[in-house]
Structure formats: C-alpha cells, structure tokens
C-alpha cells in the first residue's frame, strides 16, 4: 500500500520508478510532493516541467499536468508556460547536467528575468542516464567514464551561480536532510520570483562507484557529516570549507517578478 501522500500526488500506476536502488531521486520526489501540499498549491493550477536525464523522469510519476521537454530546455519551456498563463504555478525539475551544462544559458537568463518559476535541481554530480560521464558539478579530481584520469574541469556552485545571475531565492539542501529539504522547497514554491533549490543528491551506481564513495548508507552518512549550515559557513575559512556541502538559504529577496512587470506593459500599451 503506498502512503497517502503518494496516492494523492503520484501516478501510482506508473510506479515503481526507473531509478537505481539507492538513488536519492525517489525520496526527493516524495519530498517535493510534501512541499507542494504544504504550500497549498491547487493541482489544477500546477504544472511540472522537466528536461532530460534521470531526475527529469520524475514527471512521469507526478499526478499533475506534466511536460518532459528537451535536454536543457526545461526553463525555456517553463518561461513560455508562465508568461502565457501567469496564474499557473510552474515547477521545474532538473539535474546538474541538464540545468548547468546544456541548459546553462537558460538558467542564467531565467534568474536574470526573475520569472516566477521554482527550479529544483537534483544534483548528483554526474550524468546518470548515459552511464556516468562528468558534469559541470563533478568536483575537480573526481572520476567519471569520460574523466578516466581525473576531472580537470572546475565545478559550478549552482546556487551561487543562480544568485549571481539574479535569482531572488537560492538554497541548498541534501538528500540526507530530507525534512529540511521539504521546508526549503516549500519556501521556494511560496517565493515570488525565480527560486532555485540545489538538492545535493546521491548516485551510488555511477558517481559513488567511480569515486569509491561506498554504499548508499555511507554516501548519506558522508552528507550528514560534511554538511555545514550557511550561518556556520560564514565563520569558516576557505580551507575549512574544502569538500563541505554548505546548506540552507543563501538569499531570499524581493524584486519585481517578470510576469507582473509584463502586465504593466500590457497596461501601458492599452491592452487591459
């Protein structure tokens, strides 16, 4: 018997999901459902948009109007949906490769516009669907099928990138800290403007195995032992923060939202 929450929010006929055993995407998807309920969103007015990759397959299980788009373009599709019908709640589910490599341009421009979309990044530091290639968030020195001698690329800090580009709400949570994740996602959904929640996720099949991170429990324990709340991180040196996951809300600001601003253009042009 699935839990009540799952019965209410998911397409149970499509379950079980396709993710590998131990992958954190399933629990993150459940956490998102809880956050949607806690935020009081009406199902009929809630659209969930995803790109391509492991994380993006979540939309197939969520009982909403869902659209699984092209690789990297989820935010651009979502921008069309939100601008066309601003009354809709638009949530984007994406992964690290989807949002920060092929979709990097769309990410920074969605941030810049401050359009009212919530973007949940299931960041597992690897391309899982294609079998373990390095992504823009694979730490330097780590291994992947396409980094057999170690990754020489520097990694992106997605919330920092989003904040610099103008996102008015940015945060990071972990797959381990799922209760905090629910609270932060709820706040992101309630936020007026563009919000980004980076979910530090675990991929035991590829990232974990390639980098000898141990089993699922060990990977989650590592998250627990290495997470530093943003307040504490402020008092720590760069060296002390090396290899740590800074969690919490990085910024939560008010700035005119894009579709509200466009309504003013319509007024100026005499369309209302």
């Amino acid at each position: 018997m699935p839990a009540k929450l799952i019965e209410r929010e998911m397409r149970t006929e499509n379950l079980p999901h396709i993710w590998c055993p131990g992958c954190s995407h399933g629990s993150t998807m459940r956490a998102l459902c809880q956050a949607i309920e806690n935020a009081g969103l009406e199902r009929k007015n809630t659209i969930i948009v995803s790109g391509i990759g492991c994380s993006s397959r979540a939309v197939g299980y969520l009982n909403f109007d869902t659209i699984h788009t092209t690789h990297g373009r989820a935010l651009a599709f979502a921008t069309g949906i939100k601008l066309a019908k601003p009354q809709l709640n638009v949530i984007v589910l994406t992964g690290d490769g989807d949002i920060s490599a092929i979709g990097g341009n769309h990410l920074i421009h969605a941030c810049r516009r401050n359009i009212g979309i919530t973007c949940i990044v299931l960041n597992n530091n690897i391309y899982g669907m294609t079998g373990g290639q390095y992504s823009p968030t694979t730490p330097s020195g780590d291994y992947a099928t396409t980094a057999p001698y170690g990754n020489i690329d520097r990694d992106f800090d997605i919330p920092l990138l989003a904040k610099s580009a103008g996102a008015t709400f940015t945060a990071r949570v972990t797959a381990y800290g799922i209760n905090e994740a629910i609270k932060v996602m709820e706040r992101a959904i309630r936020h007026k403007g563009f919000s980004v929640v980076d979910v530090a996720s675990i991929c035991p099949s590829y990232y974990g195995r390639k980098n000898k991170k141990g089993d699922v429990v060990k990977m989650l324990q590592w998250q627990r032992d290495n997470s530093v709340p943003v307040k504490a991180a402020e008092k720590m040196s760069k060296e002390e923060l090396q290899g740590k996951i800074i969690t919490g809300i990085f910024n939560d600001e008010q700035y005119p939202e894009y579709t509200d601003e466009y309504e003013k253009i319509i007024e100026r042009a005499g369309g209302r």
Partner: peptide, 24 residues
C-alpha cells in the same frame, strides 16, 4: 501583442524561443 493582452518575449537564444513557444 501587449495591445491585445498578448505576450512578447525576447529570449536568450533561438532554441529558447522555440521552447517558450511550445510552452505557451
């Protein structure tokens, strides 16, 4: 478009424009 309550957006690139059109 705004004169009739419609929406115009200049996207960041051609790919995004096509995506936004489908979204709308």
């Amino acid at each position: 478009l705004p004169k009739v309550g419609g929406k115009f957006v200049q996207m960041e690139d051609e790919i995004a424009s096509m995506a936004a059109v489908i979204g709308a």
